[in-house]
């Protein structure tokens, strides 16, 4: 096995172009497990850890540019106010040791339906900046997951950064596991309210072959909020609307039975999480509106 350690982004892209089968390694919390269990035997490992910029982030006016290797710990510590959904999701990943190493680039690289970043990324409506010696392109997150553990990267491409809109409203993330920490999701749900566009976005994890959005639920809720003037009057969302939203989230899922849980439980749990996280985000939105009006 060859072990390449490019010192710069350009060198990394050149190496990947030369060795398209090379497996990038960032925190290694997925790659090393696969190698140790012999699920994967790469000819070439491409170590990205010397490339400093992958560990940097930049908070702009409207977006946050998150380097692919920024660890979950850093996200939790530094980006909670601008990326609350992703920060909450990051806190549910594994244990402190893993969170110190692993990051969103690796989660996207794996594109496992159980990756905890995905529901938050889908709900935020981010774009993934990928590059190769051929150039750079931005992949909208909605087009990123193309199959079970498959993403939209070409063989010579690497993930450089994720461009996330700064939260313009409350965001939440919730995941069910049968242990109170350090657990792979049985299913997970992310929601982001976008008051600036008066839309709602969602993300579902571990309940379909890929991470998905519950689009019908989003559209239903946006219409219901609009119709009732809720964005302006800040009233409590009627239970019937929350229930319908929850049902549509459940319906969007396409789960399976496995050792972690049954398909029907996953559907049920998604509905509960959808209803609760909608309640939490909406409460927060109303609270913010009220204090904004008072000020």
């Amino acid at each position: 096995m060859d072990f390449l350690r490019p010192a710069s982004w350009e060198e990394a892209l050149a190496a990947k172009a030369e060795h398209p089968t090379a497996v990038p390694i960032a925190g290694g919390t997925d790659v090393m497990v696969e190698i140790n269990f012999d699920h994967r035997r790469p000819d070439v490992l491409l170590d990205l850890n010397r490339i400093g910029e992958l560990h940097d982030w930049e908070v702009g006016e409207d977006t946050v540019r998150l380097g692919a290797s920024v660890s979950y710990t850093r996200i939790i510590e530094n980006l909670r106010s601008v990326l609350p959904g992703l920060a909450t999701a990051s806190h549910t990943v594994a244990s402190p040791q893993i969170r110190n190493r692993g990051g969103v680039g690796g989660n996207l690289g794996c594109a496992s339906p159980a990756g905890d970043a995905h529901p938050a990324l889908l709900a935020s409506g981010c774009e993934v900046e990928v590059a190769s010696v051929r150039g750079t392109r931005m992949i909208p997150i909605d087009e990123f997951y193309v199959g079970v553990k498959r993403n939209a990267l070409a063989p010579d491409e690497l993930i450089r950064a994720i461009h996330l809109p700064r939260a313009d409203g409350p965001q939440q993330f919730s995941k069910v596991g049968t242990r109170n920490a350090m657990v792979i999701a049985v299913c997970a749900f992310g929601i982001a309210l976008h008051p600036s566009t008066r839309t709602v976005r969602t993300g579902i994890g571990s309940a379909a072959p890929t991470p998905i959005r519950a689009k019908a639920a989003e559209e239903f809720l946006a219409a219901a909020l609009e119709e009732g003037g809720f964005w302006d009057n800040g009233k409590i969302i009627p239970p019937a609307v929350a229930r319908q939203f929850a049902e549509l989230v459940s319906g969007a899922a396409n789960p399976i039975d496995d050792v972690r849980g049954s398909a029907s439980y996953r559907r049920h749990a998604l509905g509960v999480m959808a209803r609760r996280t909608l309640g939490w985000t909406w409460d927060e939105y109303r609270g913010n509106e009220r204090s904004a009006r008072c000020a």
């Binding site: 909450t88 939440q172 596991g177 999701a185 609760r276």
Partner: peptide, 16 residues
């Protein structure tokens, strides 16, 4: 959430 069922997974803030 550490003191609640689900723990860090943030599944309830007391509901249910």
């Amino acid at each position: 959430v550490r003191a609640l069922p689900g723990g860090l997974s943030n599944t309830t803030h007391g509901e249910g």
